[in-house]
Amino acid sequence: MSFKTLKFTLNGEPMEIPVSPSDMLVDVLRDKLELTGTKKGCGKGECGACTVIMNGKAVASCLVPALKAMGANVETVEGVANGKAHPLQETFMDLGAVQCGFCTPGMVMSSKALLDENPKPTKAEIREAIAGNICRCTGYVKIEEAVEAAVQKLQEKR
């Protein structure tokens, strides 16, 4: 197997790592870079647990060949808290949006991608943004409330 050097920006830092053409981004993140916050729930892009933000868009990292990230700006859940918890993380914690926690990183990333692009989303836009993220614990009620509350928090900051 021929390895190639993947060069990209990961959570704001330049990163270089040898990967094989068959490696998926999720496996490079989890196994090679040991950033296990990105979860793997299906490996087929059906559950959203592996969601990361690539060039500003939420993507299922299990569907992204690692070499597609060449030169890209990739953000994982580990990069969201910048010294202190992001408002989304605060509201997830405070409003009971976390249960088993396995979908949480993906939910945080999908919501963050939404808020980065659209700081005042409607309820329907929030639902659409997390519709690809399956949560089996919460019934999504408190997750939605947490995203709405984070929108408020971010507005107040501005």
Partner: peptide, 14 residues
Amino acid sequence: RRDALAKVTGEAMF
């Protein structure tokens, strides 16, 4: 919740 911070930051170990 006790587990909340670890889970929202991706630090929680499974």
